[in-house]
Amino acid sequence: MAAEMRGAHAIQVEGLRVTFGDFVAIPNLTFTASYGEIHGVIGPNGAGKTTLLDVITGKTRPKEGTVLLDGKIDLRRLSEPQIALAGVGRKFQKPSVFEALSVRENLELALRLRAGSILSELRGWTDPRRAARVAEVLGETGLTDRADAPAGILAHGQKQWLEIGMLLMQRPKLLMLDEPVAGMTDSETSHTADLVRRLRAPDRAILVIEHDMAFVEEIATRVTVLHEGTPIFAGAMADARTDARVRDVYLGRH
């Protein structure tokens, strides 16, 4: 099954148009990300990167266009929780964890064993698979010794990893990271790069939105450069650096 998925489009966006009042954030965007890849989305401020994420997660509803997950699930017709259950995970720009809950509880909450009603999920809370999976992810994120600390007292970087860990619990088909290394130290950044690389799986597409070019270059297998809601480049990061238009609108400014 994983073999069939490899190379198929995890997310497929066509003819997308998003407006806020008179402001056209995305005029007409076509974009795809495939299973198995780590896809970097870069572009200057206001290029429409976060808007694209908002559309995929159902936070923003577009005027026109199709958004298909796995080539068949129409995300425009689903609510935010339904989209999450369908296999879309998202990491916010700001670390977003439940601060009053312990690290373990955060992870427990993130695991949906019975994709469906909250009630059935709560009833199956003591399922041994849950504990096993939590222990596994605690190990992966390096948070095992902080498992019972409230998430609120974690350091900034640890919160980011916890959030990524929660996404891992979800086992998403499409994982979207919105500026995962913003505000991190160099060593934290490299730990995060490791973590993201480990998240890579043949049945998963990873979308990384980032300003840090070095970070994107380090992890991405493919990049798309957005400018004013329109992709102006798609391909390898190395080629992006040499592309004339990309230099003009984005790299030239740095």
């Binding site: 929780p81 999450a84 995970g89 998202r90 964890v97 439940f98 809950l101 909450l109």
Partner: peptide
Amino acid sequence: IAVRDDEARLRFLGYD
């Protein structure tokens, strides 16, 4: 408590 701390995050975990 998760609702109180971060409702949006909970939604993106697939809970309404």
